[in-house]
Design a protein around this nucleic acid. Structure first.
Lengths: 253, 253
DNA sequence: ACCTGTGAAGCCCTTCACAGCC
DNA sequence: GGCTGTGAAGGGCTTCACAGGT
């Protein structure tokens, strides 16, 4: 989900649909597991199951990359691992900077899955001077004042923001100014970035709210009226209302 | 993204599109900020900007909930906050259990944004007996052996999995058996769940890989051939290949 | 004059179903 | 016989553009 200052129209980069790109990492993970078990080939059906998608979708996805399978046989595991890795840009090293070394930032710094795919935590940055020098996950925390230099020196183009929401936009601006063009944002804030900068967001609270929505549906299959707490009165009451759970109103007979 | 054992066909619950549900939390956050600044009403244009979407989409989204605006004026902030909260099921309390209290689990337990929206960390569960009793974020960690009882006693219906990937499916099965019907999975694993159970996943590594894909595009606008490392040989070489970066091949004149 | 609510159009993605190849 | 690759159909979401209400 790339949110930019200018709403880029879902830039389908070189013909590969965004939805497909988002699934390539899933395929790669499944393929890597097969590779470790020394499985030589895999069918679209098997691989699709392992990745949690259906096989038609998988074959369509792969068709955007090229004709990498063999009819009647399936896909060569090692070959596909290489092709997908290359397509995702994982054959090169990506230095990443994490800004905001609180609980979450520290957890990410310690996260093993990071390094496994060409990503390398090149720098940890925090605004608290007291943290400067203290190593987290073996990497010394550096102060925000040096952000520009740190980004430049390490050739960082991907930044991870794990600051409190209030600081996120400012940090984002500084990262972009220093040359970062991809941002992973964990702060619950809408970031504004210039065109050409990608932002993806991860928001725990949003995920839970979506789950709660569906959870509520499951529970309220028949028991409808769970009216707790007084709904605030409408500024301008009008005729049509929502489907249910609305203001007490006279039911039309 | 609800991944189930049976692929539910994007269950549009009571007519509200899934895409709309996923944006309601964004609107709610923007509205809450306006509410705290005591702004009484807001136009679709203003609110859309604050939420990082365009106004047509926002109006369409709200139209699924009902006619909650006033033409020529806009939307009443307090009223909308209530309606969206109710729609998302946030007018009730949601006890949540976190399983796997490593760095990430602890970070989530400490995360403030949790409690702000009706979610309450009711239990922390870990397989390490040494952790039992130790409080994290003021909540004592309990042992996995008691998982069933803990879930039941607290009426937990939403579980968060922050275990290592190897343990995720097993923990998931136990959560479901104990009555959990919504799962937020941070482990890089495809979870199998019975029908009726929702799974949403958050995967840092996948997000980074998607960013890397686009990042690679930006960098390689002209400089194409970044060939490092030998690509593994294909089991069965064939005719058609991928668009570029493939095996060295004779170019057709 | 202004802003919402919504049919209609367009786009993207998924799914089907089968031709093509091993 | 089996499995991939892909046109075509179908469905959902976004965007447009304007009718309708205040």
């Amino acid at each position: 989900m790339a949110t930019g200052r200018t709403h880029r129209p879902a830039t389908r980069s070189r013909g590969i649909p965004e939805a497909t790109v988002a699934r390539l990492p899933l395929y790669l993970r499944a393929l890597t597991a097969l590779s470790e078990r020394s499985v030589p080939t895999v069918s679209s059906e098997e691989l699709a199951t392992a990745a949690g998608v259906n096989s038609a979708k998988l074959r369509k996805d792969f068709s955007y990359l090229g004709s990498y399978g063999t009819r009647g046989v399936g896909y060569d595991v090692e070959y596909l691992v290489y092709q997908i890795s290359r397509e995702l840009g994982l054959t090169q090293d990506w230095p990443v900077a994490i800004v905001g070394i609180g609980n979450l930032g520290a957890a990410l710094a310690n996260y093993g899955g990071f390094a496994s795919r060409g990503f390398r935590v090149a720098a940890l940055i925090d605004a608290d001077p007291a943290m400067a020098g203290t190593p987290v996950a073996g990497i010394p925390v550096q102060h925000t004042d040096d952000l520009d230099r740190i980004i430049s020196d390490n050739g960082v183009s991907i930044g991870v923001i794990t600051t409190p929401p209030g600081a996120a936009q400012q940090v984002c601006d500084r990262l972009v100014a220093a040359g970062v063009t991809s941002i992973l944002n964990f702060a619950p804030t809408v970031l504004s970035v210039p065109e050409g900068v990608d932002v993806r967001k991860v928001d725990l609270s949003i995920e839970l709210q979506i789950l709660a929505f569906h959870e509520q549906r499951k529970a309220g299959e028949d028991a409808s009226g769970t009216d707790e707490g007084a709904p605030p009165m409408r500024a301008t009451p009008n005729g049509r209302k929502g489907p249910d759970g609305d203001m007490p109103a006279v039911m039309p007979a």
